[in-house]
């Protein structure tokens, strides 16, 4: 139940709260502000002035070019676009199929099977790293695009299954039986009836899993090493180690660039972000 929307408070305490909130908001924006300010400086300008001084140069484009090409953030960025979209999409498709088997076709042992898959959400990531690394080395999946796509699809699957299974089980069985009478096949029913009905959930899931894969550091760092395969956050972390002491503006630009897709998604889909957060909280 959502309470009816109440008007804004107008008392003196409300105004005091607004002032305090404004100051705090300013404090929250300050770090970003100074990072942007220093990210546009040329290397020389940066070395000469203090971290607080206003930029005397505008080297944003050359800093971007440097971070993208010389420091090799570019390949990581493109890789992560692929990993995040393909991984999230694969997880949703695979989960939709599984949710159909569990919630609609009601296979024997559905609950146990669900629980086995869902248990993939409870372990800290450290539980997977060593065996994955060893297995990836011995099967040739190490440092390959396919290896990362498979892993990201796998780790996104349990939560997608949880949400889609819940969604599918709220859809009344009469819908399916009517379709069956009309001669619709089993895959047809999933494709034409269940998936469209679950598309709002699927959209939020895609957004959330995309963001998660995009932001992943630890698996990218463990399962890939070369600049042409590793994802964006692993590239950024390396960059900080290699260039962090020498070309600060370029590293700051890289950190800001690496956040562009998720920040853009955030502004477009703010509402869904909050919805996704709520999903997480109850999941």
């Amino acid at each position: 139940m959502v309470a009816p929307r109440r008007p804004h408070r107008r008392s003196p305490t409300a105004w005091a709260a607004t002032v305090l909130a404004s100051l705090l908001a300013l404090l929250w924006l300050t770090p970003l502000l100074f990072n942007v300010m220093n990210a546009v400086k040329s290397q020389r300008d940066f070395m000469q002035g203090s971290a607080l001084s206003w930029p005397h140069s505008f080297a944003l484009w050359s800093n971007i070019a440097y971070a993208w090409t010389t420091a090799q953030l570019g390949p990581g960025f493109v890789n992560s676009l692929v990993y995040a979209s393909v991984g999230a999409a694969t997880a949703i498709v695979v989960s939709a199929l599984a949710a159909y088997a569990l919630a609609v076709l009601r296979i024997r042992g559905a609950f146990v099977l669900f629980f086995v898959i869902y248990s993939g959400t409870i372990f800290p990531f450290q539980m997977y790293l060593i065996p994955l690394y060893k297995a990836y080395l011995s099967t040739g999946l190490y440092d390959t695009h396919l290896g990362l796509i498979l892993f990201y699809s796998a780790i996104a699957t349990p939560f997608c299954l949880f949400v889609l299974r819940n969604h599918f089980s709220t859809i009344t069985p009469e819908v399916r039986e009517a379709a069956q009478l009309d001669g619709c096949s089993r895959p047809g029913i999933l494709w034409h009836i269940y998936l469209p009905l679950a598309s709002p959930s699927a959209a939020v899931l895609f957004l959330f899993q995309f963001t998660w894969i995009w932001n992943d550091l630890i698996f990218g760092m463990t399962l890939a090493s070369s600049a042409s395969v590793r994802p964006v956050m692993a590239a950024l972390a390396t960059l900080r180690g290699v260039y962090g002491g020498t070309d600060v503006p370029a590293v700051l630009v890289a950190a800001l660039l690496a956040s562009v897709p998720t920040v853009v998604l955030f502004f477009i889909l703010q509402r869904y972000f909050i919805q996704g957060l709520k999903l997480r909280a109850v999941g």
Partner: peptide
């Protein structure tokens, strides 16, 4: 919306 890695940098 800023990743923890970017936040760290």
């Amino acid at each position: 919306a800023v990743s923890l890695t970017s936040t760290g940098v």
